[in-house]
């Protein structure tokens, strides 16, 4: 089992649980198990088969984009966290999100 910490606005779909336990040998499998257990989450995390571009997943302190993404392997007891990137803007521009490089 691994744990996933759910962002506050999506806890409505996990029975108000901030942390849930799931199964999965990879991060992708763990997220699939999460959305199988809590199906209402799926449309807010995925667009088709891909994670939405504002959905970030961290393994411990590490953004999984800097690991092996959804193929990153998991050990029992690992902790994942889902973090949305907040972004907004007025109408009239179609540019993609672009974060400043630190």
């Amino acid at each position: 089992m691994v744990t996933i910490r759910i962002p506050s606005p999506l806890r409505a779909y996990t029975g108000e649980q901030a942390v849930v336990e799931v199964d999965g040998a990879t991060i992708g499998a763990a997220l699939e198990d999460l959305t199988a257990r809590y199906p209402e989450l799926r449309q807010h995390l995925y667009e088709g088969q891909e994670l939405r571009n504002f959905v970030n997943v961290f393994l411990g302190e590490e953004d999984i984009r800097f690991l092996d993404g959804l193929d990153t392997g998991l050990d029992a007891g690992d902790s994942l966290r889902i973090i949305p990137s907040i972004a907004g803007g007025r109408a009239g521009c179609e540019s993609a999100p672009s974060l400043r490089q630190e």
Binding site: P7, S8, A18, N56, F58, D63, R81, I83, P84, S85, I86, A87, G88, G89, R90, G92, C93, S95, P97, S98, L99, R100
Partner: peptide
């Protein structure tokens, strides 16, 4: 606002770390 400076007149973004820090504080 961490969006590219040239785009900030119509775009706004925060880092995931900002969310993490303030969600922890709220909890």
């Amino acid at each position: 606002n961490v969006f590219d400076a040239a785009e900030q007149y119509h775009r706004y973004a925060m880092t995931p770390q900002d969310w993490m820090r303030l969600e922890d504080e709220a909890d």
